[in-house]
Every structure is written in C-alpha cells, then in structure tokens.
Design a protein around this nucleic acid. Structure first.
Lengths: 293, 293
DNA sequence: CCTAGTAATGCTCAGATAGAGCATAAGCTG
DNA sequence: CAGCTTATGCTCTATCTGAGCATTACTAGG
C-alpha cells in the first residue's frame, strides 16, 4: 500500500479491480527465482502496476487466513502487506490515487467529529449495541463516544464496523446482496482492511519516527508540514506547539528561502535534516495525548 | 519465539538443533489444509515441539530473503515470525529455556554498561570503525557510546555486530571457520536475528501495552513486577516512580493479600486489571527517556 | 501612502509529568 | 529491643504540554 498526501488529503494508490470490480491495492505474486527479497518483489510489482518507485517502505503484516484465498485444498495464499510512502507522483495507466477518507470517512477528525459519525454511524452503532453492554463499551471506546478519540485505532474501528455489518465487505464475504447506505467506499478482497492496518500503523509511527518527511517535498514551510501531519493523523494540532516541537527536535533546518504563500507573512522554508534518524532515539511528532475523562 | 521471565532473567524457548547443531526456535511448516489461520499453525507447532500453550501472541515479521532457504530454483521459503509471552512453564523433552542475555550479553544494562561491552565489544568496534567516520558514528549511536543507551535498538546492534563480523553467524553464513572469542551464544540459521527483532519489539511495546502481565503470575508484588520489566528492558528503573506509574495507571489492583518476602516489610500483592486494555489508549510503563547529551 | 486582512513567528503561563531523593512503616534476625 | 531490610508514602524540581496573547511581515484595496 502506497500513501501520499496531496492538497492536505491523504491518498492511497489503487489499481483497477478485475472485471470492473472494486479497486485493489497493487499486488502480485513473488517470483521465487528472480525476486531475491520480498522488498524487491514489492518494488517490482509496484513498478509494473503503477509505475511508481518508492524510497521508504516497511513490512506491515502477513495475512494468511484460509478465508483469504479460494479454498482449494492443498494450496494456500499468503499475502505479505507493505506500507510505502512517496511524495506526490503521477501513476501509470490503470492506477490512481484515491482519498483515504473516502474509504474511512469516519477517520477524518480534523474538523471535529465527522458528520458521518454523528449522523450515520452513531445511530447504527447504537442499534447494533442495543441491549448489549459489552458492545456498547467497545463502540464507546473505539469510536470515542464519551471517551477520547484515539487516531491510531483505525483497524479496531473498521473491524467493529465489519462485525456490525456496516461496511460492504461484511456482505460480500457472506455472498449477500448489499443493502443501501454503508460506511465508506469499499475495495476488493480484504484490501480495505489492509489499508486500515496500514493507516493505524502509520499514525502511530509518525509519533516516534520522522516518516512524515517521506511524503514531503525537498523544501516546505512548517505550516505545510503541519497540515500534512494533520491530514494523516486526522486531527488538528496546535500550531505554535507543533512548531515548537519541530524546532526543538532539530528535525528540520531552514533553507534560508521564504515562500510568499496565500496572503500573510511569508513563511520560512525548511528542509529535513536526515541525520537525525541516526542521532536521536525517537524523533517524531507527539500527538496530543488523549484526555482522560 | 516464546519469551518468559524467571528469576528476573528473560528466557527464550528453543528446541534442539538438528545433528547436534545450535538450537533453533520452535517452528514448522504451515499445513494448508488443517491450519485455518497462521496463528493456529503456530500454536500447533508449539504444542508439538515444546508442549507449551500460549495466550498472548503477535505476529512479528515475515522473513523471505532468498538467502534464508537452500537456493533451489522455483522454490522459496517464507518464515512468518511470531512472538509469544507466557508465564514460566516446564517445556516438553527436546525443548528448553535459555537465557536471552546468553544470546545478547551486551543487552543487559541493568547494572550499568555490561562488562562485555566495555572489555570486549568497544575495542573490537573501535577496530572495525578505525578511520571510518560513518562507522564510528553508527557504533556510537547504536551502542550508546557518548550517547544515550536505547534499549529498543536490539536489532540494530545485532546487525552491526554481524556486519563487523563479531557474531558467529557472520562466519557460518560465509561458510568460514569460526575464530575464537565472539559475542554471545549463536542459534541456528538466522534465528538469533529473529530473537533480536522480537526483543526490540517487545521492549518497545512494553511502554505502551500492558504486555508484561502476560509473563506474570496471577498475583505479584510491585517489586516483582518491576524486576520483570527491568529484566526484559535491560535497564533499572526508579523504584518509587515505577510504583507511581503503576498506581496512577490503574493497571493493577490490590488483592488484599501480602507476601513476606526475603526480609523486610511484607509487600502487598496485586493483580492485573484486565479491563484497562480496552479502557485506556496506551497503558504501559514508560521507560526513562533517553537523556539528551 | 495608508489601512485592513492574513498568516508566520515569538513569547508566556499554568497544569501535568518525570526524575530524584528523603522519610516512615513493618516485617525479620539476633 | 536494636539493627537490618524492603515496602510504601511524600516532596521538590526540572521539564514538557496545552493553550493563548502579542508582534511581525507580507498582500490587497482604497
């Protein structure tokens, strides 16, 4: 799964699904002869399917449930998921960027609790948890109802929605027809689940690794940097404090240039100081700690 | 890889290597027909090879380099590594617990920089980095020479030692005879590398997940809990502050019982409050933050 | 040129947390 | 009962975080 951020929206790269079906993440089988490492295999398929080359990439998770693959006896499909970050780039024919929050509209908390949550999800979660204290508890914790919203619980939220039959995949897995209104845009197979895994991991890792710079251009303003972080994490950050952290963390250095942005005082341009990666144990951006209630 | 802590020493469960070779982690091939999920396959092999059943288990990493397997064309071995935690338990015949710090003597920083580091590793790292500023920098950062010691960089340290030919595996991989003094006890194949991955991950995760209770008995004193954490993380913690964190975090509750330990005031017994797992976003034990120099 | 608008940047302050150490309590051993 | 040992309670300070006010440096419109 390849992620970037453009115009302050997090994007994920997908390829057309077979037979006009829902899109899929780029993927392909390992060639045991030519692919010396899993990393190389992933890069090879990315190049073939999307034309995109990535620098930062990390392994996510290996999916191996029997359910995944067509249940032919004696055969089994393992899928090793990867997460890659790239600056914006135009993909090849057949591949396109889609907005991550089209897949998970409830994950964009930047302007407070998203309306999908309040208008759509809450009532349906209520119905699902009706007369079931355990379900009520889970829904409240994972969706931050009367509890702090935790940006990294992406997978938990998706799985709960799956369990509550509020996402399309829950029906296609049971070979049932889709009812009307469902949460977010679906991907083929279990790929939306993989994206949820990746987004959660990414949000968490941003706090202790300077991954964000993998999606930034060479030079950027602190506001751009902040908006990019906010886009991925899905919450807004306090501007001055963000800048303080970045400053103090020695993550960046001024280029000396300035940018006359859309009205207002020109912003100083910064570049990433890549040597911090080895210097410091955990250079990242602390998220606001969830408030205890 | 299964980890426990006994007598304040972290242990890892290994099985006898083939032909009297170095021990290996328990492992075995997936049965595509009977193993519905990877988790189940792991548990099955654990039961067969060690007789141990685990509750907590998480997937670690999937190793798929061609180097791993005998290079027969058209065939390829993927190894999905898992990390499991158990309270002490006697394993079956052919399996045994070994001290993790026999594998990585340099990782036990509980009584300050271990003597192996000072007497043995430092000089050899010096030699390896002689006249090479980049190597000097890496060695200083990863091994905390004139820099803070970062407990979670287990894999980085092992890999650097591998690169510097200071661990046995570097020679066996090149089919060269072993020289004398080398760092730590080796495992077969790349299994020590897997243990390094797991230990690093475990140390990191302890800080934000209450994993530690997976290796604790039902009831324990706060000092026992602290010693167990210290054993895994490999550093000493401030006693009063540790206790404060545990208290405030509502991670445990008193059982009401007390234990008359080895001299001194009897300690109150505690048990884990398992409901915090869902309640709180990140219940764990913060490690002392590495000091900036 | 002057004024208003806008965003960048600088600074301060209070509350929370972490690191360190002192003081007291409650057992045990002789 | 004195002295030892460990558990437990408490305090003090440096640092960090969340939040907001103030100032600066531009642009656009009169």
């Amino acid at each position: 799964m390849i992620v970037t951020v453009t115009d302050d929206e997090p994007k994920v790269l997908v390829v057309d699904g077979p037979d006009g079906g829902p899109p899929l993440l780029p993927s392909g089988p390992l060639d045991p002869d030519s692919d010396d490492t899993l990393d190389l295999a992933v890069r090879r398929w990315l190049a073939i399917q999307t034309g995109v080359t990535v620098s930062y990439m990390e392994q996510l998770y290996t999916f191996g449930d029997r359910m995944r693959s067509a249940p032919e006896p004696g055969e089994r499909q393992l899928a090793v998921g990867y997460l890659a970050l790239v600056p914006e780039e135009t993909p090849a024919e057949g591949a396109m960027w889609i907005d991550t929050y089209d897949l998970f509209p409830w994950e964009d908390y930047r302007r407070g609790p998203p309306s999908v949550l309040r208008d759509d999800m809450y009532p349906r979660l209520d119905a699902w948890a009706f007369n079931d204290v355990a379900r009520q508890g889970r829904a409240q914790i994972t969706f931050g109802i009367g509890a702090p919203w935790d940006p990294i619980r992406v997978l938990e939220r998706y799985e709960l929605l799956y369990e509550a039959s509020l996402v399309a995949e829950a029906f296609t897995a049971r070979l049932e027809p889709l009812p009307g209104a469902l949460g977010g845009r679906a991907l083929g197979r279990d790929h939306r689940r993989i994206v949820a895994t990746a987004l959660g991991r990414l949000r968490g890792k941003l706090t202790y690794r300077p991954l964000i710079f993998e999606v930034m251009p060479e030079a950027f303003t602190l506001t751009e940097l902040q908006h990019t972080v906010e886009a991925l994490v899905g919450i807004e950050l306090h501007k001055q404090n963000f800048r303080r952290i970045v400053d103090r963390g020695d993550l960046v250095e001024r280029t000396g240039e300035h940018r006359s942005s859309t009205g207002g005082r020109p912003a100083a341009l910064y570049r990433f100081r890549s040597d911090v990666v080895s210097e410091r144990p955990s250079p990242g951006f602390s998220l606001p700690r969830p408030k205890r209630l």
